[in-house]
Design a protein around this nucleic acid. Structure first.
Lengths: 206, 206
DNA sequence: TTTTTCCAAGTGGTCTGACCACCTATAATC
DNA sequence: GATTATAGGTGGTCAGACCACTTGGAAAAA
């Protein structure tokens, strides 16, 4: 294993694994050599190999199954975001930050989704809102989750989900019931420019 | 250490460290307990502690100095980026998510800051842009960092900082030079409603 | 006294070997 | 042929041993 001076072993292992994946043209789901095999091949201790593997696992690049082995994971970008979020979304983050960031994302998601919503999608949104069996907070969750999904921005969705989940613990400041309906009407009437206004008015009326 | 069944030890350690940081109100630069101390306190092996620490290091949450100790670092996911980049960041959708989320936050920050900018702040922004000694990418970073700071939304700022650093490694899609000046003019002329337009046009002209 | 030198203790870095828990293919049994 | 038992491979974890590096304070030198 080629190693720069002062470089930690697990960094080298990281690089070797990358090369292995590349040169063997591995795809998601494929199996990596066992920890023991890797450590023997690379001439390093198993603990160093494990440090590298654990890091890759946390990054969502690999997946380990006890008793089976280590596998290249099906592409899950932004797994990292979760870990980072758990450190950022600590107590130091103010409620105001959380709420306003969440609303900001919801507003923008409503705008981003505008061009990607088909009649069918709007119908789904309507169903979510009209369903009598779900609580209003659940409706809200479902509604924006669907919108976020339609934005096709995975990162934005992830961030919203994390904030939504975290803020659920202390409060659920929702929009007035009519806002969802209003938004749907704007979609139907193709009035993009009014979306921003809808959300801004809602926020200030609180 | 409270542990869910089937949960790996290093996940528990991760959580414990997070709690430690939070409850001791640690700030970037502060020292964490030594590996040996952690393993003793948590009743786990040192190797498990190391697996957690290595992962956190790769995420840029902590920093280790040989012979000195482990320190809380300002979130600088440089390492992460390199690893992610070399493994998966080739995926187009990932990049697009990053870029569009970043731009979205910048646009909204420009709007949120509007009411909080005093003449002095606008002067500072102007200086940042006009400074001949800094590169254009550095200007961009400083400019929006200042704006984000003025929004007084710490969470949004942190999210932006993370994304900004992530994006820095693979590409630097900047705004045209005049956009910064234009924004400053809008601030001076108190034309809030034109801010959105400025960013949207910029984005589509790309 | 002040300065310099040096070393012991603490810390991360790594390796080894030992178990345990889990999965699976295969052989033995029914 | 279907079922069961088992052995071997794999990840999960721990304990202990060294090494390399840093630092602060003791000891030596000025």
């Amino acid at each position: 294993m080629t190693m720069l001076p002062n470089q930690k072993v697990y960094h080298g292992v990281l690089e070797e694994i990358r090369i292995f994946i590349e040169s063997n043209n591995l795809n998601p789901g494929d199996k990596l050599p066992s920890e023991r095999e890797l450590s023997e091949t690379l001439g390093t201790g198993r603990s160093s190999v494990r440090e590298a593997l654990r890091a890759l696992e946390l990054l969502g690049i690999i997946e380990t199954r006890h008793g089976e082995g280590t596998f290249l994971s099906t592409y899950r970008p932004f797994q990292t975001v979760e870990i980072l979020a758990s450190f950022i979304l600590s107590e130091k983050t103010t409620k105001e930050s959380l709420i306003s960031t969440k609303k900001l994302i919801e507003k923008e998601a409503a705008k981003l989704a505008y061009n990607k919503l088909e009649d069918r999608d709007i119908a789904v949104l309507n169903e979510i809102i009209c369903d009598l069996d779900t609580s209003s907070s659940q409706k809200d969750m479902d509604f924006f989750n669907y919108l976020l999904m339609k934005t096709e921005n995975v990162l934005l969705m992830k961030i919203w989900q994390l904030i939504a989940e975290f803020s659920q613990t202390f409060e659920k400041p929702r929009y007035d019931a009519h806002v969802y309906q209003d938004l749907i009407h704007l979609y139907l009437k193709k009035e993009y420019s009014a979306i921003e206004e809808l959300f801004v008015n809602q926020a200030s009326s609180k």
